[in-house]
């Protein structure tokens, strides 16, 4: 195994492309090192991207924010401006692991780890975030929901890696929220999760919404039916019930050590309702 810490994006892409064996990109390392420890992967090359220009920066862009791929979730949580615009995303990222893990883990890493249960991912999907992908060719922008391909698999091609994630600008009277279910209060992987991002008009009617679910399918799901269930409503009980039903209907989970199909399907709807209420309140709606 080799460890490289390139100074430019081009060098990083070259290293990753040239390596014939197994490669891993090292950002915060909170997934990569666990995989190494467990012997799940024995990479031939690890490329530490933390020295790349701008990779640890949060920059205002086009009314939103570009989050460097090596920005730790702790650093993200300390950014008041991002937190004010996208509280659900920041909270979701802030739920990953312990304080110690927060000091290292990144949203880009959470996305590329491609676990259906990654906490940041549903919130990013609901937010309509866009990942910037570098590689052997020209950089390209990819909606975050198009990055995971299945548990542990991404759509990134050989030599490609994420350099930043753009959280877009948002209209006035918008809010987002993310909730997950875990058996303890901390330190668990989500058994089911839901993120809601929505925008209201001046009368408190939802005009736009995105709803994403985690840990209930092989990848994070963007549930259009769930969004449709609350658009045009003031999030009254029948809208919430329709939202929960649409979410439960969109679930295709598995039975495993963390939860049952029955439980995940039920609780995904419960979490979506609760997240929608928080997002609605954050958007200035009177619940």
């Amino acid at each position: 195994m080799r460890y490289e810490k390139p100074q430019t994006v081009a060098d990083a892409a070259r290293l990753l492309t040239a390596e014939k064996g197994i490669t891993r990109v090292l950002g915060g390392g909170t997934d990569v090192l666990v995989q190494l420890k467990a012997g799940m992967v024995e990479p031939d090359l690890i490329v530490d991207i933390k020295a790349l220009p701008g990779i640890r920066a949060i920059v205002a862009e086009a009314g939103g924010f570009r989050i460097g791929a090596a920005v730790s979730n702790a650093q993200l949580g300390e950014d008041a401006a991002v937190r004010a615009m996208w509280p659900g995303v920041v909270e979701a990222a802030g739920l990953i692991g312990s304080t110690q893990v927060q000091g290292r883990a990144t949203m880009a890493g959470n996305l590329c780890n491609a676990s259906p249960a990654g906490d940041a991912v549903p919130a990013l999907v609901a937010a309509g975030a866009v990942a910037r992908v570098a590689g052997p060719g020209a950089a390209r922008d990819v909606p975050v929901e198009a990055i995971p391909a299945g548990p542990g698999k991404t759509t990134l091609k050989r030599g490609e890696f994420i350099t930043s994630i753009l959280l877009p600008a948002r209209p006035a009277k918008s809010g987002d929220a993310y909730l997950r279910f875990i058996p303890r209060t901390e330190m668990d992987i989500a058994v089911a999760s839901a993120a809601v991002s929505l925008t209201l008009n001046d009368h408190g009617v939802i005009t736009a919404a995105r709803v994403a679910l985690g840990a209930v399918a092989p990848t994070v799901r963007l549930v259009d039916d769930a969004a449709a269930a609350i658009i045009g409503t003031k999030l009254h009980d029948d809208a919430l019930a329709a939202l929960a039903a649409a979410c439960s209907a969109a679930c295709a989970p598995i039975d495993d050590k963390r939860g049952t199909i029955e439980f995940r399907t039920e609780v995904a709807g419960v979490l979506a309702k609760r997240a929608a209420r928080i997002a609605y309140t954050r958007a200035g709606g009177q619940a």
Binding site: L26, G29, L33, I46, D48, A74, S98, Q100, R104
Partner: peptide, 12 residues
């Protein structure tokens, strides 16, 4: 930053 040293490569 508080970290788990088991999740940091020594090279870092």
């Amino acid at each position: 930053r508080l970290v788990c040293s088991c999740l940091v490569l020594a090279a870092e």
